[in-house]
Design a protein around this nucleic acid. Structure first.
Lengths: 107, 107
DNA sequence: TGTCTATTTGGCGAATATACCAATTATCCA
DNA sequence: TGGATAATTGGTATATTCGCCAAATAGACA
């Protein structure tokens, strides 16, 4: 694998890494329903606000969300329209995995 | 976030984590072109065969690929048809990010 | 200006992921 | 059976990620 190819996959992996955490997936799905401020999201997640803020920063850094300051609050929103489709893909994989697990038990 | 919801996002994150490595993304894309055996993939990746084998095990464990033994070789193939679409999504995000970076420099 | 609320940043310990080497397993074939 | 090749597994050192606390930053408003 040459250097250029490796760089390309590293760039893709940066985005995939941003998706690779349950809290961040939850944040993305919540944001797919509309803009939310950090304190709302923090309440839903139930973690320290600094933790949520860092997760949001990771999503922003990957280009998955954008933020907008309104007074003392910061609202985040999805930047990438294909995120909801990704969730569909993840769900279909989970469903197929569950099916296989069932088959291996019953058959 | 209640326990059930958390479990759901953890399950999704398991799959996302499997995607979150440049070598594994490369393997998936290569497998999207057809079955490949571990030694072929190892040669392409340019890492130790044990490293590649472990990456493939992670992909298999996530339900993204399946394996098939043929004699002394093991062939892997994609199990999930939506993987190529995922790559398209990753690429579109990268393109949008590059665009924004360009705008922030020139405008 | 001083205070309050919302958010981000710095830093640290704990947990997780990664890559390689060495050893093991599995299959083929002489 | 014994040797050769392909692949997986175990072990370990290193690197990265994670979550919280504490501190810093920013805006609103009296």
């Amino acid at each position: 694998m040459d250097r250029r190819t490796r760089k390309r996959y590293e760039a893709r992996a940066e985005i995939a890494k941003a998706l690779a955490h349950p809290t961040r997936l939850f944040l993305l799905e919540e944001l797919s329903h509309g803009k939310r401020c950090v304190c709302e999201l923090t309440e839903m997640v139930g973690a320290d606000i600094s933790t949520v803020s860092k997760h949001l920063a990771i999503l922003k850094n990957a280009g998955l969300v954008q933020d907008e300051k309104r007074g003392v609050q910061v609202f985040y929103e999805l930047q990438c329209p294909c995120i909801p489709k990704m969730f569909g893909c993840l769900e279909s994989i989970l469903a197929a995995n569950a099916e296989r697990k069932y088959e291996s038990v019953s058959g």
